[in-house]
Amino acid sequence: MGYFSDIIHGFKTLLTGMKVTGKYFFNARKEIITQQYPDNRDTLTFPERFRGRVDMPHNENNEHRCTGCQACEIACPNGSIEIIWDRVLNPETGKKKKAIEKHIYHLSMCTMCNLCIVACPTDAIVMTHEFELAAYDRSDLTFVLNKPGSKLMAGVEE
């Protein structure tokens, strides 16, 4: 008796499992969470706080907010950020002031930990929503974030 009841019980448990999978088999449209990724590139939505590549936003006059204080360089755990700066003469005040020459960002070392963004006192750098970051050459992974000829936005330093 135990032998047959075991067999019946076994079939029963298998059928219960089949009921669950069958439910999804016949309602295949329900609860689809996968996305047709490369095809839906244009309609992809990102959360506001998505952490992608670091970038430095510039306004229409080619001005950025980076004062060259190097807080991000110190905060970075991996040495992804390197700032080359110089003291530049301000023609209005006649004083020499710190200004960035190059804000170099090594994507290859970056872990997207967001510590540089938090450390920045002037909100000069942001995390973009850019996430397709593969490159064929290692040198393509080094970026100069400030655009050529750009300068500091007025009113940031105060």
Partner: peptide
């Protein structure tokens, strides 16, 4: 997670003294 801290796996949402941001 992604909405809260911008990453799905490597969250790094805790910082010494609290949280990096408030919840969304």
């Amino acid at each position: 997670f992604e909405n809260t801290c911008g990453a799905r796996l490597t969250m790094n949402y805790n910082v010494p003294g609290g949280l990096m941001w408030d919840i969304y």
